[in-house]
Design a protein around this nucleic acid. Structure first.
Length: 768
DNA sequence: CAGTGAGCGAGCTTCCGCTTGACTT
């Protein structure tokens, strides 16, 4: 038992620090916050200066009692939580909950986990900074009041179990507003003119592709340019060479790691964080929840060594980056490999890939600029107003590009891969092999992906590294938004080509607007957002967090009392809550689409108990009909035709052997029903159009699969061995049992099966 | 699992930020 007890936030950190401190020190972890406002009620006394009611959370009772016992036996307790607002609060809650003697308690902080840094920290302890603690308390109480007063308002006015909060409601707002931008967007047709030229006196195969920078509004305008090119003699007007350089991106923070893992590896936010957590626990990387781009001195030195060894000295350039993002608290380092000389690690494929990404980004950040020679040429002709331009980049020195280049979110229509230009001189004649005018359409704004939404939130200073992934999970869980793919549509583009003195016109079909893993608002998200924007704009405003953060800073400086800040917010806020409560329901009114030509009744859409629906006939009409809207349809945008089509389901397709075949669409997509069985409809078929012949084939296919599914059956006992998605398994009644590895499912006897059933433990109650 | 669109009223839902854990199909 050590004389000294050191408490840090994370157990992995405790382990490493324990090694540095050695004899006489016991290092333990608090596992983050140990106390919080009681979770079942507001727990803020609105009458008594907003006094918070803190309790030790259930899952922390054990940690707290353990730490308490250890603290009792220790001569000194060192509170070594992070040096930011939350960390300071953790230190204070520890001192309160463990009833620490101030004489025996010391607050220390360190920014690097090295022996030197820790020794230094121990030499210069300080007291808990109560101003900073109160700034945290203000943050906590404000979030609780906003969340626990707005959410119940939604339960009353919209639907139970909904939620609202300073962070999540802004995230939803961003998605809803982006959707409306997209709806309002009208694609503009423009013409892009490109030419393929052959420099005179060079090999026949050499071609130079050049483009006119400006876009042309209409077909006539574009054609007149082509017309003017007919007999033109093209020459190089200018050749310009410029030196350019590119610099590496800073090392990873949580948000940039999430963005790059999404773009380069296709990871979701949760996936990235789960894999990073496991790399951290294995000691491969530094802490993964950080907003800092700072690297420790040790890391800088190792990076230099590694780069010099691998690529040569000229590739190394030591750089220290400054954090751009507002509100960054910088309690940790950037995310980097713990040992940069560790180029590869052991682990799952996912872990290897993420580690590799982190390694490359870190190393590249300490490498030299790439230097690039950019050649720009211009081609023109007398009588042709438009100028054709081409650029080519030649990498003179690759520098950091040897290791890493950052991806972008914008999907480019064509790859602008650098191509090389032949030796060209001003005045040189260029034969126009072909010149074409292609119709292009302006792009609608992109929907957010999980990662680009995090980027946006970070820019606005909303949310923290530890909450980005959970926040986005929350708004999906509430049903406000859905992550989805959309197949995209086709459109026809016109092309006119001038070749050998003649202009020919044709059209091509272009696929556009396909989306993968994007966030779409749902009707309930739109409704809740509009309700909040209408009544609480000051809170769901994009600038609200930045504004209160300024106030928290003033509290942290000791120039403002925390509960005065709260009071100034709460007075107008509670008034607004009261007023909104008195007012009528939010605009959940129905939207009228028109009349049903068959019955002459009114067709409306509205949000029902189970989601958005279309309705024919009034609510008091005994013959009224309902149908749910399909995935991807919104109340705001659905048309009468689309709504009426929904009523065509369920549809009788025909009969097979005197049994009806029905086609419809359910929770799990389109299906056909035959002899009481449901069969999912393959993608290429639609329930509106599938024919009885097609249905027969689908049913036959499904029967075949069903037969292959059954490996063995014990009818008397009601036990079956089946082939499932994850391999063979045992089924008895409604329960499934795993077959141990190495057993051949087809040759198992009843006895061994019963034994497996016997030995399989009961499923524990579902925890949430 | 593949349709629901209500009625009565009790009891519950919910925030943001720190941190990991222990469950199997």
């Amino acid at each position: 038992m050590g004389e000294n007890l050191v408490i840090v936030e994370s157990p992995a950190k405790a382990k490493t620090i324990g090694k540095f401190l050695g004899e006489g020190f016991t290092v333990k972890s608090s596992f983050g916050h140990i106390r919080d406002l009681a979770s079942n009620t507001l727990s803020v006394d609105l009458e008594k200066g907003y006094e918070p009611n803190y309790v030790v959370s259930d899952d922390k009772k054990k940690v707290v009692s353990e730490l308490k016992a250890l603290a009792k036996k220790s001569s000194t307790v060192w509170l070594a939580s992070d040096e930011d607002r939350e960390g300071e609060a953790i230190a204070w809650h520890l001192s309160e909950a463990l009833k620490l003697d101030p004489e025996k308690t010391k607050r220390i902080v360190f920014h690097e986990i090295t022996k030197e840094a820790i020794d230094n920290a121990v030499k210069s302890p300080r007291d808990i900074d109560m101003d900073l603690v109160m700034a945290q308390q203000a943050r906590r109480v404000l979030d609780r009041i906003v969340g626990f007063q707005l959410s119940p308002l939604l339960w009353k006015k919209v639907r139970p179990k909904l939620s609202a909060g300073r962070v999540q409601s802004v995230a939803v707002r961003l998605i809803v507003e982006r959707e409306r931008e997209i709806l309002a967007f009208i694609a503009k047709s423009q013409y892009k003119i490109e030419g393929l030229f052959h420099p005179e006196g060079t090999k026949q195969s050499i071609k130079v592709k050049a483009e006119v920078a400006e876009r042309f509004e209409g077909e006539t305008e574009a054609l007149s340019v082509l017309e003017s090119c007919k007999d033109a003699v093209f020459r190089i007007i200018s050749v310009e060479e410029k030196d350019a350089k590119r610099s590496p991106s800073p090392p990873f923070t949580t948000s940039t790691l999430q963005q790059e893992a999404s773009r380069k590896l296709g990871f979701s936010l949760n996936q990235t964080m789960r894999v990073a957590q496991s790399l951290y626990e294995s000691g491969f990387i530094t802490y993964m929840r950080t907003d800092s781009v700072n690297l420790s001195k040790l890391a800088l030195v190792t990076a230099k060594q590694v780069i010099s060894e691998l690529y040569g000295k000229e590739y190394s350039k030591t750089r220290q980056y400054a954090t751009k993002s507002k509100g960054a608290q910088e309690a940790h380092e950037a995310i980097r490999p713990t040992y940069i000389n560790n180029i590869e690690i052991d682990g799952t494929p996912q872990e290897k890939r993420l580690y590799n990404l982190i390694w490359k980004r870190t190393v590249a950040s300490q490498m030299a600029d790439a230097s690039i020679l950019r050649t720009e040429i211009e081609i023109g002709a007398e009588g042709v107003a438009a100028r054709f331009a081409a650029t080519a980049d030649r990498v003179k020195f690759d520098g950091f590009l040897k290791v890493y280049s950052e991806s972008t979110d914008d999907e480019q229509e064509e790859s602008d891969a650098p191509f090389s230009l032949p030796e060209l001189k001003a005045g040189q004649k260029m034969d126009a092999v072909s010149i074409s005018a292609t119709e292009k359409f302006t792009q609608k704004p992109p929907r957010y992906s999980e990662a680009s939404l995090v980027k946006k939130l970070e820019e606005l200073g909303i949310g923290r590294p530890s909450t980005y992934a959970p926040t986005i999970s929350t708004i999906m869980q509430r049903g406000y938004v859905t992550k989805d793919n959309r197949p995209g549509t086709e459109r026809v583009c016109k092309i006119a080509t001038l070749e050998k003195g003649e202009i020919t016109k044709r059209t091509i079909v272009e696929k556009w607007g396909a989306e993968k893993g994007r966030l779409f608002p749902e009707d309930i998200g739109i409704l809740v957002n509009d309700f909040l924007v209408e009544n609480f704009d000051s809170v769901v405003n994009f600038g609200f967090t930045a504004k209160v953060e300024e106030q928290f800073d003033i509290v942290a400086q000791g120039k403002l009392k925390w509960n005065k800040l709260i009071d100034e917010f709460y007075k107008p806020f509670s008034k607004r809550v009261e007023e909104t409560l008195q007012e009528s329901r939010p605009k959940n009114a129905e939207r009228e689409l028109g009349t049903d030509p068959a019955s002459g009744k009114r067709v409306i859409v509205r949000l029902g108990r189970f989601g958005p629906l279309a309705q024919i006939g009034e609510s008091d009409d005994p013959e009224k009909r309902f149908v749910s809207l399909a995935k991807g349809q919104l109340l705001e945008t659905i048309t009468l035709e689309e709504a009426l089509q929904l009523f065509a389901l369920p549809r009788r397709v025909g009969e097979i052997k005197d049994e009806e075949v029905i086609a419809s669409s359910g929770r799990f997509g389109p299906y056909i029903k035959y002899k009481g069985k449901f069969i999912s409809l393959p993608k290429e078929f639609s329930p509106y159009t599938v024919t009885i012949e097609e249905a027969a084939a689908i049913i036959e296919e499904s029967d075949k699969k069903e037969q292959q599914k059954l490996i063995k059956s014990f009818e008397k006992e009601g036990i079956e061995i089946l082939n499932g998605r994850f391999g063979p398994y045992i089924k008895k009644g409604k329960k499934n049992y795993k077959i141990p590895k190495g057993k051949d499912p087809a040759s198992m006897d009843l006895e061994s099966i019963l034994k497996i059933i016997e030995e399989t433990p009961e499923k524990p109650a579902k925890k949430r």
